[in-house]
């Protein structure tokens, strides 16, 4: 059964008198345990598609279904809190908090059942992603770009959700860090059963993905 289905998603914006389509009747089913890459040129609508799948925005028409259930706008907050995590290109960490504290913010927010002693769980998770205890206790601006992105991924994993969306997660990283992050996503999909959907224009990510989709002229299709 699909973990996430998008059905006839359409997204438009008004450009003067003209109505422009970013997405037009986009439909797709995403399976758990798979690593998807959505490719597309700049302005093709990749980020819009991800924001709709992550319930950060509302489609003009169409629906998204999580585990078969329609996600209505009224459910968006709950959906973001308990079912989906998003990793951003610019990490989006809270700068005056430490790495562990950034992870704890997400853990405190979700309604999902989590193990007790959350600070230890968060520190372990960061360690698993290559952030040692000393760095975990530092405020995030003291970390490198790659390390910050790992903290962002740790935050995404900490809430124990099944769906992870990533928007150009390696866009600000060097080659080595990018490869390491891609490997983390693959591991999450293949060893932890998560559905990982990455929108990117980086061909190297596409090479590692289980399935590559291309977004062009508002339509989504298999590569």
């Amino acid at each position: 059964m699909s973990i996430l289905s998008i059905k006839d998603l359409t997204y438009t914006y008004q450009d003067g008198a003209e109505l422009r389509y970013i997405l037009r009747d986009v439909s797709y089913d995403f399976e758990p345990g798979r690593f998807y890459a959505v490719l597309g040129n700049s302005g093709s609508g990749k980020t819009t598609l991800l924001s709709l799948m992550g319930a950060l925005d509302e489609p003009r028409s169409g629906e998204i279904f999580f585990q078969g259930a329609s996600v209505k706008p009224a459910d968006y907050e709950n959906y973001r809190r308990n079912h989906v995590s998003i990793v951003f290109q610019s990490y989006n960490l809270i700068p005056w908090l430490t790495s562990v504290e950034n992870v704890l913010v997400a853990m405190d927010t979700t309604d999902n059942k989590l193990p007790p002693d959350q600070p230890t769980v968060a520190a372990n998770l960061l360690e698993y992603l290559g952030i040692d205890r000393a760095k975990s206790a530092r405020r995030v601006p003291a970390l490198s770009g790659g390390e910050q992105q790992r903290v962002a991924i740790a935050r995404a994993l900490a809430t124990n959700v099944d769906l992870i969306l990533a928007d150009e997660p390696t866009g600000n990283l060097d080659e080595t860090s990018s490869e390491e992050i891609v490997q983390v996503f693959k591991t999450l999909a293949h060893e932890h059963g998560k559905c990982v959907i990455v929108v990117t224009h980086a061909a190297e990510i596409a090479r590692e993905a289980d399935e590559v989709l291309v977004l062009s002229k508002g339509a989504l299709s298999a590569a």
């Binding site: 907050e77 959906y79 973001r80 809190r81 998003i86 989006n92 809270i94 913010v105 997400a106 979700t110």
Partner: peptide, 14 residues
């Protein structure tokens, strides 16, 4: 703004 955007993206209630 960014900080609040992060809270909202995590599903923190307004």
């Amino acid at each position: 703004r960014r900080e609040f955007g992060i809270y909202l993206s995590l599903g923190v209630r307004k």
